[in-house]
């Protein structure tokens, strides 16, 4: 059951679009910056399959320039 957080950089001028795109995905929480072109994305998926699907959807987002990992947790390994 992984939890990750990322800094998501939108393509130029596409912050609003990116926020909408991300919010439309399930298992995602979006915290946009008030004043700069950057968005915090927190993902929380119940299992590996969902996580893989989500990663694919993220890769396909037109509005997304880049995604950099800030925090990762996966309790699968510990259990």
């Amino acid at each position: 059951m992984p939890i990750f957080s990322y800094l998501a950089m939108p393509k130029s001028g596409a912050k609003e679009v990116l926020c909408a795109d991300l919010a439309a995905l399930s298992n995602c929480e979006v915290i946009p910056s008030d004043n700069q072109e950057v968005v915090v994305l927190v993902t929380d998926t119940p299992d590996e399959t969902t996580e893989d699907k989500l990663q694919k959807s993220l890769n396909n987002l037109q509005s997304l320039q880049s995604l950099s990992l800030a925090f990762g947790y996966d309790d699968q390994e510990k259990q």
């Binding site: 915290i31 910056s33 927190v42 800030a70």
Partner: peptide, 10 residues
């Protein structure tokens, strides 16, 4: 924690 660490990184 995940959100706050991303905010800190930003």
């Amino acid at each position: 924690a995940a959100a706050s660490s991303a905010v800190a990184t930003a």
